[in-house]
């Protein structure tokens, strides 16, 4: 892909992000932060590439550490979001 196609994806994604995030209800802003945290750990893709490479041991170690850090975020972020979302309940109709 050339730079311009990548830039196009990026700019359009910013617009998608703008509209999607404005539609998030304010009551869920904390889960929003937790889940964006989890998904921004998609940076693990870069970490995995570095960790899988064999020719430079230094870079490989940096990659492995980055994989571990991003994993903390991925598992932690999604799990804590799930925990929070499970707490939001509607009024129960009693009796």
């Amino acid at each position: 892909m050339d730079f311009i196609s990548i830039l196009s994806i990026f700019v359009l994604a910013c617009f998608v992000g703008y509209y999607v995030v404005w539609s998030v209800t304010p009551a869920l802003h904390t889960p929003l932060m937790a889940v964006t945290n989890a998904i921004s750990s998609v940076i693990i893709v870069g970490a995995l590439i570095a960790a899988a490479a064999t020719e430079a041991p230094g870079a490989k170690w940096l990659g492995l550490i980055a994989v571990a850090l991003a994993s903390v975020n991925i598992f932690g972020g999604f799990a804590v979001t799930e925990r929070m979302l499970a707490m939001y309940k509607k009024k129960e109709k009693k009796g």
Partner: peptide, 8 residues
């Protein structure tokens, strides 16, 4: 990564 970065 680009889409996620833009979203976040």
């Amino acid at each position: 990564m680009i889409v996620t970065g833009a979203l976040v």
